[in-house]
Design a protein around this nucleic acid. Structure first.
Length: 516
RNA sequence: GGUCCGUUCGUCUAGGGGUUAGGACAGUAGAUUUUCAUUCUACCAACAGGGGUUCGAUUCCCCUACGGACUACCA
């Protein structure tokens, strides 16, 4: 390949929310495009009108944007090769099917679904290993290869329903080089006479895909492994259409597998597995019952897009170095399609979580504060930006998701209504209660409202009470927060503020009974 | 069933004819910490099996097993 502009495309079907495997496919396409200075296209493959799902296209656009995958050309962006939605390109495909027929590489088929079923049943009964419409069986079917010319003409003129099928040669080795797998060789007898044009006048995936990739000057086709079996068919199409010289290079990505059992990760696995398989939340309807369904999304679950992207990039690829943390720009620099592995990868929930914690901790308090503020707002709690930043600052080391901030930091806004039993029973007693009362009294006199200042005051007060700080510390935390564990206690007190701490101490001493 | 693809620690993977088979996540233990978490340190843990080729194979070849994808007028 010399001097050809690199143009890759992500071509999903709008049949529902884009799932995480699709996001990875898009990501690899994007990384390659950027790495090689090429273009990333987005094409919507909606040739199946029955499976169209409203909102799916918008979802795809939003999900890619959230992940930071930028589309250079295509649906939602525009460009010189539009339209980028196949249903809007419908009139463009027929001529290529006609050309194939004229060249003897395709033919009309008039078989009804019932006739096709009957054929398959017949072959099955005859123990034919692989029942298909092919170079052998087409001789027994009703098509323009078996029917007299005038009858075919009459059928076509009479408006009979027909499809156009590719005439796959009987004995031919079809080979192509896959960027990830090397040479792949398939015998043409394993490929059936695929339908190219459906009876509703729409092309099938195979035709539309090849025509569009050609017209859009796609240089690399990077897609999931589920397409590998039909790649030989696509090679045939390029050849018969006369486009073999500019045929894109293929790269078939290994699949993403379910973390538990076996099989590829599917849209349905979401709730069952307890983690999202979609980038964004999806409001759908159950196909059977028609009831509204809600599928979790990484975004709503509190994952940072950079964490998801970093994790996904490493599922099936690695740079060959020990570095694991990569920003999008670093991924672009390091990416190469040759280093994509051949074997499928199981989804690892722990690893995504780890990536998320990493990116969460790397964020500034100012960046994190909005997450807390949003939750606070939902609970009608007013909080300053400054205080929110302080809180996330002490909390970010201990949470996995920004969504956890509210839950973990509740006591900054609400005085405890219950006190941790274990600590109370072990650490709470008369002298401790007295000492805490003394501390509450002393607090307003502290020369310095800082973690250091409050700690010094605490130590001095305890000394005066004849107690060691360690004997009272735990009780202090429980009295103020209700919890047994949390971030640095004196930092917490500073954020709470002296008057509030003093109030809470008095309340605790008044409510917690002293063991006899 | 048929065709195709795949197989290194529990998971993601590095490596590659001669290595103590490396890293990360998880797990375990310890250190630090007023606590939990963080952080740090250590430990645990793998070349699916069988044949070749070779002085030598986890690495190359073949077979078997296992896993997966595909096998629609769905993509």
């Amino acid at each position: 390949m010399t001097e050809r502009e690199v143009r890759v495309r992500f071509a999903p079907s709008p049949t529902g929310p884009l799932h995480i495997g699709g996001v990875r496919t898009a990501l690899y396409n994007y990384l390659l495009a950027r790495k090689l200075g090429g273009k990333m296209l987005l094409r919507i493959e909606d040739t199946d009108q029955n499976r169209f799902v409203p909102g799916a296209e918008e979802y795809i656009l939003e999900a890619l944007a959230w992940c930071g995958i930028v589309i250079d050309e295509g649906q939602g962006v525009g460009g010189p090769h539009g339209p980028y939605k196949q249903s809007e390109r419908k009139p463009m495909y027929k001529q290529y099917a006609d050309q194939l027929i004229a060249d003897g590489h395709a033919y009309y088929a008039f078989d009804t679904p019932e006739e096709l079923d009957a054929m398959r049943a017949r072959l099955q009964a005859a123990k034919v290993p692989n029942p298909q419409y092919n170079s052998i069986t087409r001789a027994q079917m009703r098509n323009s290869l078996t029917l007299p010319e005038d009858e075919v003409k009459a059928l076509l003129d009479g408006g009979a329903q027909y499809v156009i099928r590719l005439k796959v040669p009987r004995k031919e080795e079809i080979r192509f080089q896959d960027l990830i797998r090397g040479w792949v060789v398939v015998h043409s007898s394993a490929v059936d006479d695929k339908v190219l044009m459906k009876s509703d006048g729409m092309p099938t995936y195979h035709l539309a895909n090849i025509v569009d990739d050609h017209l859009m000057e796609i240089s690399h086709v990077i897609r999931g492994e589920e397409w590998l079996p039909s790649a030989p068919l696509h090679v045939l199409l390029y050849r018969y259409l006369g486009w073999e010289k500019t045929m894109p290079q293929f790269a078939h990505l290994p699949l993403l597998l379910k973390p538990d059992g076996t099989g590829k990760l599917s849209k349905r696995d979401g709730d069952r597995l307890g983690f999202p398989v979609f980038p964004l939340e999806w409001h759908g309807t159950d196909a059977e019952t028609g009831e509204a369904t809600l599928s979790r999304g990484y975004r709503e679950d509190g994952y940072l897009p950079e964490a998801l992207v970093n994790f996904l990039a490493f599922l099936g690829w690695n740079p060959g170095t020990q570095q694991e943390i990569f920003s999008m720009d670093e991924l672009i620099q390091a990416f190469s399609i040759e280093r994509v592995s051949k074997s499928p990868a199981k989804f690892d929930q722990n690893k995504v979580k780890w990536f998320n914690e990493h990116y969460l901790r790397a964020k500034s308090n100012a960046e994190l504060a909005p997450y807390l503020l949003t939750a606070l707002h939902e609970h009608a709690i007013v909080c300053s930006q400054e205080k929110a930043e302080q809180i996330v600052g002490v909390m970010k080391e201990r949470v996995s998701f920004p969504n956890d901030f509210w839950q973990e930091a509740k006591y900054f806004f609400q005085a405890p209504t219950a006190y941790d039993e274990t600590v109370v029973s072990k650490k709470w007693n008369g002298p401790v209660a007295t000492a805490l009362t003394a501390y509450a009294e002393a607090l307003p006199t502290t020369p310095e409202v800082s973690a250091e200042g409050l700690k010094t005051l605490f130590n001095d007060t305890m000394a005066a009470q004849g107690l060691k700080p360690g004997q009272v510390l735990q009780a202090l935390r429980v009295a103020v927060t209700g919890a047994a564990a949390g971030p640095d206690l004196f930092e917490t007190l500073v954020i709470l503020g002296v008057p509030e701490v003093a109030d809470r101490l008095r309340a605790a001493v008044a409510t917690i009974p002293v063991a006899a």
